[in-house]
């Protein structure tokens, strides 16, 4: 990383490295709210929630929808691991709503399956909220 206080941000999905840029700061959606990361952030591993990731650079703010995953802050840069990275306007509203309905119908009869249902619900809700 150079000395000009920039953050190296790398976004990887299981398919490929989606994004590899340098920026001023990043805001990631965590499981409990947003978290801003600037140059010199202490090393951290965090769980991402579902929502908007904002990458601020000289050319403005780029927004991406992050579908869960992790963020890992290291000396070299910020790694965002997510299943899917899409532009917010690419979210399919109908599909999101169908997924939400499906999540509502899930059976939860044990702590594990309840947690799984909760997670699926949150994910579907975030997509419905952000869908245009």
């Amino acid at each position: 990383m150079s000395t000009d206080n920039k953050v190296h941000c790398i976004v990887v999905t299981p398919e490929k490295t989606e994004l590899d840029t340098t920026c001023d700061s990043i805001v990631v959606p965590m499981f409990d709210g947003e978290l801003g990361i600037q140059f010199g952030r202490a090393p951290m591993v965090g769980r991402l929630g579902f929502g908007l990731m904002k990458i601020k650079s000289n050319s403005g703010v780029a927004e991406w929808f992050v579908d869960g995953g992790f963020v890992q802050v290291t000396r070299e840069g910020v790694y965002v691991l997510t299943d899917r990275l899409i532009k917010p306007d690419q979210i399919d509203r109908k599909e999101a709503e169908a997924d939400l309905d499906k999540a509502m119908m899930m059976v939860s009869n044990s702590p594990e399956s309840a947690a799984f249902k909760e997670r699926t619900l949150t994910q579907a809700r975030a997509r419905v909220r952000l869908a245009k």
Partner: peptide
């Protein structure tokens, strides 16, 4: 990474992350 291992801060906690990992 470099030779040194950084000590990480885990949010919410190491086990919470494990649940998703």
């Amino acid at each position: 990474a470099s030779g040194t291992r950084d000590i990480y801060e885990f949010l919410p906690s190491a086990s919470g992350i494990l649940e998703e990992v």
